[in-house]
Nucleic acid binder design. Structure first.
Length: 279
DNA sequence: CGCATATCCTGACTGC
DNA sequence: TGCAGTCAGGATATGC
């Protein structure tokens, strides 16, 4: 499931391969993937536009068009953006819902079996330059400069579990279930630890873990799990799954102390942690 | 406020 | 082997 590192990997691939490309054709076959606006309006807003930059905040991708509108993409659970050079030769995968034909005869395809993902084009931007239609998005650990004071405010500002805080996109944007668990492990903090009980040194450790885990995962081009739901722009796998310490490892030995990794339900999600290394 | 739960959906997995 | 049932999760809405 694409989280910040996977979305960032796709963003970098897009910057490399579709920047400056003009959208020539737009085909919407999956209505659910373009559900915020009329597909005809969506197609009209894209056709003839050139992609000038690609940015990201949390798990949202934004492609800035030459008329200053934004193409917004969220992959949610199973969405993939695939760039296929010269359209006719490569058969479309099942669940291909949107196809953008580009002026270099490549195709940008949106494939999404579970149809939770979505695309839309908007010019209605808030004062922060982000689409007004999106809910509040918190700090992006790889985009926003952040100091210890901000981290302590985040932690003290709510009485909840660490896991719930990490998953709350209004607080921190980009972390999902997998990376939340890996971050807690790296920070040596239990996912069910109350945020208001985390002191200054642990808070420092936590933020270092957030940035390190996400940086490492981006360097590894993200995590592709057994279900192979995440692919990069060219259909390739990430390999950060090889570095997972806890996620998906319930019952297996902790890589540090050998204690079996436990799995519990925290904040409505499965959580994996080492009961010995994490306090 | 915080938390749980339901919703959307399909594919992978589990258990009989 | 095959089939039915369960689980997975990102964002959002709603109820307690």
């Amino acid at each position: 499931m694409p989280e910040l590192p996977e979305v960032e990997t796709v963003r970098r691939d897009l910057v490399r391969h579709v920047l400056g490309r003009c959208v020539v054709t737009v085909e919407v076959t999956g209505r659910r993937s373009v559900r915020r606006q009329d597909p005809v309006e969506f197609a009209g807003a894209l056709r003839g536009r050139t992609i000038e930059s690609v940015s990201r905040r949390g798990k949202y991708l934004f492609a800035t068009l030459d008329d200053a509108a934004l193409l917004v993409v969220h992959l949610r659970m199973s969405g993939q953006l695939l760039l296929v050079p010269s359209g006719a030769s490569t058969p479309r995968e099942p669940h291909t819902h949107v196809v953008l034909g580009l002026d270099d005869v490549s195709e940008l395809r949106f494939v999404d079996p579970r149809t939770f993902g979505e695309l839309f084009v908007t010019s209605d931007l808030g004062p922060d330059g982000r689409p007004a239609a999106l809910g509040a998005l918190g700090v992006d650990p790889l985009v926003d400069p952040i100091d210890g004071r901000v981290v302590r405010e985040l932690l003290a500002g709510r009485r909840t579990t660490l896991k719930a805080l990490l998953l709350d996109q209004r607080a921190i944007a980009g972390i999902g279930n997998l990376y939340a668990d890996e971050i807690c492990f790296r920070a040596q903090l239990r996912p069910d630890r109350r945020t208001d009980s985390i002191g200054i040194s642990a808070a420092t450790r936590l933020w270092r873990a957030v940035v390190e885990v996400l940086d490492d995962a981006v360097a590894a081009r993200g995590s592709t799990l057994r279900d192979a739901r995440y692919r990069d722009l060219h259909g390739g796998h990430g390999h950060y799954q090889r570095s997972h310490a806890v996620y998906g490892r319930a019952g297996e030995a902790c890589t540090v102390c050998g204690t079996p990794i436990e799995r519990a339900r925290i904040a409505g999600r499965s959580a994996h942690y080492c009961p010995r290394c994490q306090r």
